[in-house]
Amino acid sequence: MPIIKLHKNSKVRIVLDAGLDDNDKKITKYKTLDKARYEAGDQALFDIAKNIALLQKHSVRDIIKHEEYTLIEE
């Protein structure tokens, strides 16, 4: 039976490098943009994330896009 994939949610996560703690262990912080429009292209989401990253005091390590789908049988 074929499976249908229904888009449920898109998120963009900005991973920030927040320096080191007292034990010289990396501190990672995250900013998540939840419920991004399904129609928004990757370039548009990347540009928005980069603009938000400019407002952060920590440097950006990664920009990650997560997509969630519901799978149902046809």
Rank of each mutant, 00 (worst) to 15 (best):
M1Q: 13
M1I: 15
P2L: 14
I3Y: 12
I4W: 09
L6A: 11
L6D: 15
H7I: 09
H7P: 11
H7D: 12
K8V: 14
K8W: 08
V12N: 02
R13F: 04
V15H: 04
L16H: 07
D17L: 06
D17N: 13
A18M: 04
D22K: 14
D22P: 01
N23Y: 12
D24Q: 13
K25T: 07
K25M: 04
K26H: 14
I27W: 00
Y30F: 13
K31L: 08
K31H: 07
T32A: 07
L33V: 07
L33M: 12
L33D: 01
L33P: 02
D34I: 04
A36I: 06
A36R: 03
A36H: 00
R37A: 15
E39Q: 14
E39F: 11
G41A: 00
Q43A: 03
Q43R: 02
A44P: 01
L45T: 01
F46M: 00
F46E: 00
A49S: 08
K50M: 09
I52F: 03
I52C: 02
A53L: 02
L54E: 14
L55H: 06
Q56R: 02
Q56G: 05
S59Y: 04
S59F: 05
S59C: 07
V60R: 04
V60A: 03
V60D: 03
V60N: 06
R61P: 01
R61G: 09
R61L: 08
I64S: 05
I64R: 11
I64C: 04
I64L: 08
K65V: 13
H66M: 05
E68G: 04
E68I: 01
T70E: 15
I72R: 10
I72V: 14
I72W: 09
E73W: 11
E74C: 10
E74A: 15
